[in-house]
């Protein structure tokens, strides 16, 4: 039996309990032994799980309530959501994303850094920006505005950080080109666009 975690909150313990693959006496026994300080909450939770409805039927919810919920959620997501500009990359399937990289003659890594706004927009050569907008089928202004936004929390930076994650800093286009494992020819071509 693993030792009890003195830092586990009631909510954490109950959530872990609730997603156990087996909801039976042995699981409840194990949690009660491991977290005696949360015994009462575990019993309450086990009863909630025991009486879970077998089927969830849709209920009528007023559109105004849904809209109010969305507006509140959006506000809670913070300034990043308020400033969110529709990403011109959002509708690309994984294969379309790879295909775009091929058409731009870059690799997926550099395109990911561009998509996640890890490159300062002002340092991206105009020729490359125009080519990107053309290949995306989006107005140049929309692409420029999107890339001028703050860097995104990428899935990797989101989950691998031991502490509160922050978006990685931005680099200049030339630095990104040199550090994205591109071929020498690709680097030359992209860096030439800066002139």
């Amino acid at each position: 039996m693993p030792p009890s975690d003195p830092n586990a909150s009631e909510e954490e313990v109950l959530l872990a309990f609730s997603v156990e693959p087996k909801r039976d006496r042995s699981t409840l026994d194990r949690y009660l032994a491991q977290y005696p300080e949360h015994a009462s909450a575990l019993v309450d939770c086990s009863l909630e799980l025991l009486t879970l409805p077998t089927e969830i039927s849709p209920v009528w919810v007023a559109d105004s309530a849904v809209e109010a919920g969305w507006q509140k959620f959006r506000a809670q997501l913070g300034a990043a959501a308020d400033a969110a500009v529709e990403s011109p990359f959002a509708k690309l399937t994984p294969s379309a994303f790879k295909s775009l990289a091929v058409r731009l003659d870059i690799n997926n890594l550099l395109l990911l850094r561009i998509r996640d706004r890890g490159i300062r927009a002002v340092s991206i050569p105009g020729a490359f920006m125009r080519q990107l907008a053309t290949e995306l089928g989006a107005p140049l202004k929309a692409v420029s505005e999107y890339l001028a936004g703050p860097p995104c929390l990428t899935p990797s930076s989101t989950f691998r950080s031991p502490g509160k994650p922050v978006a990685a800093g931005q680099v200049d286009f030339s630095d990104a080109v040199k550090t994205s494992q591109l071929t020498v020819e690709q680097q030359k071509k992209l860096l030439a666009m800066e002139n």
Binding site: V61, W70, S87
Partner: peptide
């Protein structure tokens, strides 16, 4: 959708979750 800044998907999916 949140991670990828896909605002349109985020709104529609959130509203479905809310319901």
């Amino acid at each position: 959708a949140w991670r990828e800044n896909d605002a349109g998907s985020l709104e529609r999916l959130f509203k479905a979750l809310f319901r």
